[in-house]
Design a binder for these strands. Structure first.
Lengths: 276, 276
DNA sequence: CGACACCTTGAAGAGGTTCAAGAAATGTGG
DNA sequence: CCACATTTCTTGAACCTCTTCAAGGTGTCG
C-alpha cells in the first residue's frame, strides 16, 4: 500500500468527492483516512491498492496502466519528526508523495532568514522545487513522524510519456502548486494579520476535512513561530491574533487544539463585506 | 520567426551565455535582442529560426526534433498595451511565450483586492496557472505593446511525449516558476521595504542584462502602484524608498528611468552583512 | 521534578499606511 | 502644436498595525 502522484487540492479549489465521514470530535494523530484491511501478502509497494489512491490517481485508468503506475513508486521512506526529507542544496532525484504525517517546506536567504513556504499533509507531493536545477532549493521537514512514497523523477517522466493521463496529472500537480503560491502571495502582499490567520485556518481545516476530518476542529502540527513565518508575521502577533479570535468567540484555542466556532465569521474576516 | 518554450531564468539562477552586447545607454523600447535579417519568405511561424531560440530551446536537438517543435507554435498574437492576454476565469488552451513586450500577471481576491504576482519579459512563458483547472486563475496584462507565440497545450503535451528533452523542458519551466514564487514569498514574508525594492531592482536588471541590456540602467514598464502591489507595499512607500536610494547615492531615478550607481550597496541591502 | 521549548501578554517603538496636496509627465482633441 | 484633462509620482504629517523587548505562564519529556 502506497500512495503516489496526488491530486489533492492544497489551494482554493474544491474536491469532487468526500469519501470518508468526518470524525468530528477526534483530533488526528496521524492521517490514515480509512482503515483498510491489510493484505499481508502484498508487501510490494503499490498504488493500485493504496488507501489514498482515490485521492491520488487519475480516475479511469486501465488495469495495464495501473500496473505501470505501480512501478513509479520505488520505495517508501519513514521520516522522523524534526528530521528532513530533503534539504536545500541536495541532489534532486525524486518527488515524494506523503502517505502519513505532516511536513513544512522552507527556504532560506543567504543571511539566514527563513521562510516557511508551505505545510503539506497526506496526499500531497513535495520536491517539485528540485526539478529546475537538479538540486533542491528548500528544506522539507517532518513536523510529525511521517512516511512518504519515493517516486524517482526519471521514472515519472518515462512513464508519463507512455500514459498521457499520468502526464496530465503531473502537469496539474505543478500548476496547482503555482496557483497555491499565487494565493499565498495575495495573502502576504495584501492582507492584515487577522485576515491572514483566518485564511490560514480555513485553508487547513478545508484540507483536513477533505481527508475525512472535522470541519470545525483541528490540531496544529506547527508552532506559532512556523505559522508566523508562513504568514509573514511574528509569533507574538500570531498568538495575539488567536487570542483576539477567542475573545470574539470565533474560535476556541487550547495550545495547538483549535475549534472553529464560527466559520462564517472567519470567512467574513478574509473577505470583508463591502458596504456601499 | 517565433519563440517557443523558453528556458530563461526569471529567478535566481544564471544564464550560461550572454549572446548580445549590452546597449549601455539606450533604454529599450521593445525587447528585440539581435537584429535578425528578416527572411520574407518564411511567414511560417517557426522556432527553428527564431532569434530568441538560444534562450528558449533545449540545446542539442536533432533537426527532426526541431521540426516537430516548430509545430508547437500555432500562431502569434499581438497584445496592445493595457489589454489582456488572458483573464481570470477564461478557458485555458495555451501557454504563451513572450516574443516582445512586457507583461504583468495578477490575481484578485473576491473583495476586489488584487496582487501582482509577476512581471514577465521576452523569453518567458505565461499561462501555467491555467493547467490545473482548465481555466486561468489570473490576468496577464501587457504593460507595453507585445507579441506572443501561442502554444496550444494539447500540442505541447503530445510532443513532449515524443521528445523527451521537450518534456524535461516543460517540467523545468514549471519548476522554475515554483522556485521563483518561493523567492517572492521569502521577500514578502521577511523583508522590509528597502530590501524588497533592492531585490526587485536587482532581479529586473539581471534579467534584462541576460537579454543584452545594460547592467546598470533600466526603464520600468510598470507604475509605482504595480511595483508596490508586487512587493506588498503602497505606492507611496515605493516612491519614498526610491527617493531614499537616490539620497543615499545608490541609484538615479527620473520617473521610470533608473540608473543603478552602486550595485554592491543594493546587494548589501538585500543581504545585510551580519557583524558579529 | 527540573529543564526546555513553546505560548501568552504587556508596553514601548518602528515601519509602513493613510490622507492630502501639489508637481510632473502623458495623452487627447481642437 | 498647444491647452487641458488625466494619470502618475513625490512629499509631508498623523496615525495605526505590527514588531520588539521583556517577563511570566504552561506544557512536555527525559
Amino acid at each position: 500500500m502506497a500512495s503516489s502522484i496526488i491530486d489533492l487540492h492544497q489551494g482554493n479549489t474544491m474536491l469532487e468527492h468526500d469519501y470518508a465521514t468526518a470524525k468530528s470530535h477526534e483530533a488526528h494523530a496521524a492521517i490514515a483516512i480509512t482503515p483498510v484491511p491489510v493484505n499481508s501478502q502484498t508487501i510490494k509497494v503499490a498504488c493500485s491498492n493504496c488507501n489514498l489512491r482515490e485521492l491520488c490517481m487519475p480516475l479511469g485508468l486501465s488495469a495495464a496502466e495501473l500496473d505501470k503506475i505501480d512501478d513509479v513508486v520505488a520505495s517508501r521512506r519513514k521520516v522522523k519528526r524534526g528530521s528532513t526529507l530533503f534539504r536545500n542544496g541536495e541532489k534532486f532525484t525524486s518527488l515524494y508523495a506523503i502517505r502519513t504525517g505532516f511536513f513544512k517546506t522552507c527556504v532560506a536567504s543567504e543571511d539566514g532568514r527563513d521562510q516557511v513556504t508551505g505545510f503539506q499533509m497526506a496526499g500531497e507531493v513535495v520536491g517539485l522545487d528540485g526539478i529546475v536545477n537538479d538540486h533542491h532549493t528548500c528544506d522539507a521537514v517532518a513536523l510529525e513522524d511521517a512516511e512518504v512514497c519515493v517516486m524517482p523523477f526519471d521514472r515519472i517522466e518515462e512513464l508519463s510519456r507512455e500514459v498521457s493521463s499520468l502526464q496530465r496529472h503531473v502537469h496539474k500537480i505543478m500548476s496547482r502548486e503555482i496557483v497555491r503560491e499565487n494565493g499565498v502571495m495575495l495573502l502576504l502582499g495584501s492582507m492584515r494579520a487577522e485576515e491572514r490567520l483566518a485564511a490560514f485556518l480555513l485553508n487547513l481545516v478545508q484540507r483536513l476535512h477533505a481527508r475525512g476530518f472535522s470541519q470545525s476542529e483541528l490540531v496544529l502540527r506547527m508552532t506559532r513561530e512556523e505559522i508566523g513565518s508562513y504568514l509573514g508575521l511574528k509569533l507574538e502577533t500570531v498568538s495575539r491574533t488567536f487570542s483576539k479570535f477567542v475573545d470574539d468567540g470565533i474560535v476556541e484555542v487550547k495550545q495547538r487544539h483549535v475549534r472553529i466556532i464560527n466559520t462564517e465569521a472567519l470567512k467574513d474576516i478574509v473577505n470583508p463585506k463591502v458596504c456601499s
